[in-house]
Simulated assay, not measured.
Amino acid sequence: MIRVLLADDETIIRAGVRSILTTEPGIEVVAEASDGREAVELARKHRPDVALLDIRMPEMDGLTAAGEMRTTNPDTAVVVLTTFGEDRYIERALDQGVAGFLLKASDPRDLISGVRAVASGGSCLSPLVARRLMTELRRAPSPRSEVSGERTTLLTKREQEVLGMLGAGLSNAEIAQRLHLVEGTIKTYVSAIFTQLEVRNRVQAAIIAYEAGLVKDADLNR
């Protein structure tokens, strides 16, 4: 059973997300919070597998709460529930070690698959968030772009190709299909990429892919 903590200051959002999750076998919402401070306390009490946190909440915002949970509950994977207007928070969220970004307006299937992915040690990045992030980076390149470009030169050509598709939000299975390889081979590539880039999850690797210019429009518009 995947145990989930849900934190959002809007009651209707919590009700909607809870309704989606609790209809799925193997997922249980064990606690709900209306602010970040309460979320941290409930995470410490219930030790959930996954915490879904809104960014803007009273008392303590979701990103500060994510940082607190990383210290007090390192085994809890944190997923940020975001909107298009909150792209500026992505870099800060990465610094807090979040495992993923999902839109509040995401397809329910994306929410469920995202929770399952992070609960099993993976990460999730909404394709719509990926597209928006790519647009923002093109309009205002990050000062880290040159550094990210240099880091990716450590990768082989094939690893760079895999990283670009990963950055576009493709799953291992989708990448394998594109490259006509078996999924196990892609998992090996992804593991090697994480090691070379010294990142913890797919979200952090995706940011480097965007900054290094490895994400292709064709993959974002798949």
Score class of each variant (00 low, 15 high):
residue 1 M to P: 05
residue 5 L to T: 11
residue 6 L to G: 06
residue 10 E to I: 14
residue 10 E to L: 14
residue 13 I to F: 13
residue 31 A to V: 10
residue 35 D to S: 06
residue 36 G to W: 07
residue 39 A to P: 00
residue 42 L to M: 10
residue 43 A to D: 01
residue 46 H to F: 14
residue 47 R to Y: 01
residue 47 R to G: 00
residue 50 V to S: 11
residue 52 L to M: 09
residue 54 D to F: 09
residue 55 I to W: 09
residue 55 I to Y: 07
residue 61 D to N: 15
residue 61 D to L: 07
residue 63 L to E: 06
residue 69 M to A: 03
residue 79 V to K: 12
residue 93 A to M: 11
residue 95 D to T: 10
residue 97 G to L: 05
residue 98 V to M: 02
residue 99 A to T: 03
residue 100 G to N: 07
residue 104 K to F: 11
residue 104 K to E: 14
residue 105 A to H: 11
residue 109 R to N: 11
residue 114 G to P: 01
residue 114 G to F: 11
residue 116 R to T: 12
residue 119 A to F: 10
residue 120 S to F: 00
residue 121 G to Y: 13
residue 122 G to R: 03
residue 126 S to T: 13
residue 127 P to G: 13
residue 127 P to N: 13
residue 132 R to N: 15
residue 132 R to Q: 15
residue 142 S to L: 10
residue 143 P to T: 12
residue 144 R to I: 04
residue 148 S to M: 05
residue 149 G to W: 06
residue 152 T to P: 01
residue 154 L to R: 06
residue 156 T to C: 02
residue 156 T to Q: 01
residue 157 K to D: 12
residue 157 K to Y: 04
residue 158 R to Y: 02
residue 165 M to I: 04
residue 169 G to M: 12
residue 170 L to P: 04
residue 171 S to W: 12
residue 173 A to T: 14
residue 175 I to N: 01
residue 182 V to E: 09
residue 190 V to R: 03
residue 200 R to H: 07
residue 201 N to W: 03
residue 205 A to L: 07
residue 207 I to G: 01
residue 212 A to K: 04
residue 215 V to W: 11
residue 219 D to S: 14
residue 220 L to V: 14
